[in-house]
Design a protein around this nucleic acid. Sequence first.
DNA 1: CTGTTAGCGCGTTCAA
DNA 2: TTGAACGCGCTAACAG
Lengths: 338, 338
Amino acid sequence: MARGELGVAAVARRAGVSTATVSNVINRPEVVSAATRSKVLAAIKELDFVPNRAAATLRQGSNRLVGLVVPEILNPFYAAIASSVADAADRAGYAIALCVSHDDPARELRHFETLAEQRAAGALVVPLSADPSRLSQLRMVGARLVLVDRVSAEHEGCSVAIDDVEGGRIAVEHLLAGAPRSIALVNGPRSIPQCVNRRVGARTAMAAAGLDPDSLVEFEVTDMTVDEGRRVGIEIARAGGPRAVFCINDQLAVGVMRGLGEEGVSTPAEALVVGYGDLDLATEGALPLTTVGQPKRELGELALSRLLAELREGDSHHHTATMLQPYLVVRDSAPAAA
Amino acid sequence: MARGELGVAAVARRAGVSTATVSNVINRPEVVSAATRSKVLAAIKELDFVPNRAAATLRQGSNRLVGLVVPEILNPFYAAIASSVADAADRAGYAIALCVSHDDPARELRHFETLAEQRAAGALVVPLSADPSRLSQLRMVGARLVLVDRVSAEHEGCSVAIDDVEGGRIAVEHLLAGAPRSIALVNGPRSIPQCVNRRVGARTAMAAAGLDPDSLVEFEVTDMTVDEGRRVGIEIARAGGPRAVFCINDQLAVGVMRGLGEEGVSTPAEALVVGYGDLDLATEGALPLTTVGQPKRELGELALSRLLAELREGDSHHHTATMLQPYLVVRDSAPAAA
DNA sequence: CTGTTAGCGCGTTCAA
DNA sequence: TTGAACGCGCTAACAG
């Protein structure tokens, strides 16, 4: 109304029916006779009636709104999740509240509060820390939660993640197929779970090939950037180090390729490089980087569908922890073994 | 309240005050004496009271929620806008509803309806078409609108955009400083306003240098991708075409560099290339691409601040159309003239 | 500074 | 299948 708004009452009057009937036409059209229905719809159109969802929310205790809480939206990985979640939410008639925690736990907490105040039906969250106690505020108002890209034994609810161990494994498995003298791992800080897990996978692949996991030549960088990668690439080249390099992300891989190249070690002729993440810079062909792809779209879609299922099923719902499988994207930097 | 919820009344009882006082503590703390305030805050904490914004919205006619309607969130340009808008909204205590129209006008329209039903206070929209009539639904419920990255003479409201003409101009101006024999423009479809505007700027720069704008050697591609750019790069190289190339976006520029390179034309020694957009693939150093940078963060922040100003000022607000200036980011693909 | 009261618009009874 | 009436939780207006 806001502009002389009148609500269902006005529509009811106009259509010569009761407010309950108008409500039914909007929410359960199948329960209203075709004749009344079209009368009501006509009245709605004539009056430019816009249902007030706040009233419905107040009445029903929950809004058709789901929160999407991510650490960062500039990161293409999260952007991809947001994109698929937005699509799926759209189809289901839910609005999505974008919450960017920006690596700030306080901000994340404020977002939970806001979602609770809005009586969001639920939230998909990529939590900053796996500490589940922070999520209690949301549960308090009956919101359902799905953990995305993280798993937590303590989390009471569904979770959907991508198997980083497997990703590390297939990356190194692929490199080993080239029968290199030795293999390097360019890793990020151990404080990042992904780095830990991908490394575990890498070592698993070594062991599976009958090699000593400790023979993996490890480099650890603080910033997982192209520049750091380049530095490591130069170092590897000068030291005559491994000619097969698994980088924990694509930025590092790009840098390593450049660093190697600057020292006269060409890819893939003299060195193989595998990245991780399948960023646009790889996808769009900026660089022919062999990398580990992640089912980002499925991740988002599945997360939302788990949430909706929980909403639908209520207490009869039983939680699931899903692990999606990454896949190898073979390009020139590490071609398939002959 | 969803879990035996009781609302302000319960808090009021617990604190021994009236509901109005509780409301004041929440919304205008400065109007309540320190003593009562702390009593109320204590009660709120003890009861784990979570204000129900739906009720407030119902009462006030508008939610502290702004819609962000973008064509696509995977596009890093829009992701950057989303990021800055999210930050700014956060600071202002607004939630943001992410609406991805995905190049589908019907979906865009549904988003407007949803925002209207949620009684969003306003929306920042990057419209699919400049047709302003589609926005009426939102206005109908009193929502304020700010147009982002588009201008429309017919739009009743503020707008914030980036000056693409100027961007095209500085790009070609920079190339001209290298005193090339001639200049190529690799453009996208004329149906895209950005392509038209950047071209205008390019021609302006030609004219300003005393050259015939028609001497600009133009290539037009349908898909503005790396692959298409590569195709054009090869074509330019083989034809012995211009050795200074302005590409309408960074993907094309990357492709052109590659295509030229494949034909033995090296950058920047034998050819200069300038892109547009300053995508991550450039920023992160994947490729040392000289390009036109855009103040994306400012764009988002300013858009939201215009919206908030309009909300604050009400009818005394007067609309503004702001044009932000792009800037040249000089890297190796077209270094500064000696 | 604080209390009282009257709806905001809708979904849901319950009866007809 | 439809109608009448109630109240969800909150805030604006006014009274004290």
